[in-house]
Simulated scan of single mutants.
Amino acid sequence: MTLVGPRPERPHFVEKFSSELPRYGHRHRVPAGLTGLAQVSGLRGADTPISDRARFDNFYIENWSLWLDAKVLLRTISEVLFARGR
């Protein structure tokens, strides 16, 4: 597991979402992370569509850069300190 990357899902849901959502499995091209672009963009929890979270995860993977990792980490710190979105 890394600091930044797609958040892991339970195996049952990985199978379910992989069969239902195009490109869902593409998010597993990189190791899972503790935080991710989807989470700092407000897409966390059961009330957000998995299709949107997968779209953000794939965007992160396809556009990865050290700067993007830094932005996600800084936004994570901001979310934790200021408890935004909760």
Rank of each mutant, 00 (worst) to 15 (best):
T2W: 13
L3E: 14
R7L: 06
R7H: 04
E9L: 00
P11L: 02
H12M: 08
V14K: 13
E15W: 01
K16S: 12
F17R: 01
S18W: 09
S18Q: 10
S19K: 13
P22S: 11
Y24N: 00
G25Y: 05
H26R: 06
H28R: 09
V30Q: 09
A32L: 02
G33P: 15
G33N: 10
T35Y: 07
G36C: 04
L37H: 14
A38E: 11
A38S: 15
A38N: 05
Q39F: 11
Q39L: 13
V40R: 09
S41T: 02
L43H: 06
L43S: 07
A46T: 13
T48E: 10
T48L: 05
D52Q: 04
D52R: 10
R53L: 03
A54Y: 00
A54S: 00
R55Y: 10
F56I: 00
F56D: 05
D57Y: 06
Y60Q: 01
E62F: 06
W64Q: 08
L66M: 11
W67N: 08
L68R: 09
L68V: 03
D69F: 14
L74R: 11
L74I: 10
S78K: 15
L81R: 14
F82V: 09
F82N: 14
A83K: 11
R84S: 14
G85A: 12
